[in-house]
Structures are given as structure tokens and as C-alpha cells.
Nucleic acid binder design. Sequence first.
DNA 1: GTTATCAGTTACCTTTTGGAAACTACTTAC
DNA 2: GTAAGTAGTTTCCAAAAGGTAACTGATAAC
Lengths: 122, 122
Amino acid sequence: MRKKQSINNSAACQVRIAGIKDTMELLSGKWKFHILGTLILGGKMRFMDLLREVDGIAAKMLSKELQDMEMNQLVRRTVLDTKPITVEYEVTEYGRTLEPIIEEIAKWGISYRNALHKPESV
Amino acid sequence: MRKKQSINNSAACQVRIAGIKDTMELLSGKWKFHILGTLILGGKMRFMDLLREVDGIAAKMLSKELQDMEMNQLVRRTVLDTKPITVEYEVTEYGRTLEPIIEEIAKWGISYRNALHKPESV
DNA sequence: GTTATCAGTTACCTTTTGGAAACTACTTAC
DNA sequence: GTAAGTAGTTTCCAAAAGGTAACTGATAAC
């Protein structure tokens, strides 16, 4: 019976694994990073603004994802008492802590694309 | 007709959005971050090792995700000419460039968990 | 009173994802 | 010859994700 070289059994690794799992559960799906990325750049935005800015998303999806992220305190929803009712969405201070992840992801994707288009440098 | 305050129409934003999209397409799904996280820590690992280390994954999924990531040059597969055939998987140099993302995600998840458990500091 | 806008919701459907279990094919040990 | 280990694949199924389109209800303009 050969020694099982367990990598994941230390406390630090378990915590790391749980961390990855937690983050990905909050941010899973096709749209959350896009919505957050748009809101981080755009500041306060209304539902219809987001619907127009987030390319390809349907109202149903946008609504669902915003509710999801509101529950998780990443996004704040504010109803304004205007003539035709308007609703403002913005990233919370807490949601802003995701900025490093989003920027890393954007950066990586950009260099990935560049590597594909300049294969001599791969 | 009020001025449409388009956020996403600058070239830089389009590139950023495409970057996020590209990264997420490569790394979507429940398991890729876990497999990569495990492989980054573990170095060269065999199929059965991964099956044991990545908690809860089924052989089908592991096989599919590894193929996926091999196609995208994130993971290298090497068949060893041993008596019972063994196969080694490892993260490519290119795959290692994902480390910052994975570490950011792990870090964020860990602090998220801490924030939940110490609500007085929220 | 008809149309348009805002902010969604609802119903229906398709696609994707993921899990369980059985199976292949080869080798080695007993 | 039978059991066990290697590295998967295949089949079958359930659940989740996501898309389309129609609908609500309020207000305001024409």
C-alpha cells in the first residue's frame, strides 16, 4: 500500500478550497461578472440602462441576477420616487472588494486573446 | 430624447468586456477552478489522484474538464510507459498565469466567510 | 383612448450541466 | 481464472441555467 500523498488535507488547503467554492457560488453563471463590471464602471444605473448596456441579456436574467446579488449584499437597489418610477442599482462598498478579481479576469482574458492572435509569441 | 449615457461603447470597454467573456468561457462550470487549484498545489498528478483529491467529482466530469483544459493549453497530459499505464496531468506554464485569479478568488471567498461569521464587523 | 416608458414577472421551452452506474481494455498479482 | 488497479468512456437521467415572448400596472404624453 503506497503512501497516499494527500495534498488537500491540511487546514490551509481546506480553507482555500472552501474559499474558491464560496466565491464561485456567489458569482456563478453567465452574467454576474458582466453586470458587476458594468456597474463598477457606470456607477448608479437604472434597470433599463443595464438592460441596454449589458450586451445580450434578457430582462428576466437581469432581474434574477440583480436580486441574487442584492441578497448577497454585492449590489444595492434604490427605488426613486419619480413620476414614472425609476430604480437605481449600484455596487455596494462590499461589492467593490470584488474589483481585484474582476480586473484580474479581464486582464487575463485580454492577454489570452492577444496570445491567440500572435501565435509566434506562444 | 435624453442623452444615452453609454458606458460600454469605448474601445477600452469593449476589450474589457470581451476579456471577461473569454476568461469565463474557458473557466466556466463547477470544477475547473478546483481542478486547477489542486494541480497548482500538487504539481504532477495522475488521473486517480485527482479523482481522490478533488472532493466530490465524478470520473466523467474530471475526464471532460481535463480534456477541455488540455485543448485550451491550460493543462498538459502525459502518458507514461509504465507497466499499468499511468497518465500525468500538470498545469502548463500558461495555465500558471491563472494563479493570480485563483488566488484572488480564494482570498475573497475566505474573507467573505469570515465576514459572515463575524457580523459585528460588517 | 391609444401609445410609450419604466420595472419588472410569468409561462413555456431548449440547452447545458452534472451525477450514478455500468462498461471497456489492459496489466499485474494471487 | 479471478480480483484489483490503471484510465477512462458510455448510457441514462435529473436538475439547473438560460432564452423568448407575452403580460402587468403605473404614469405620462399625444
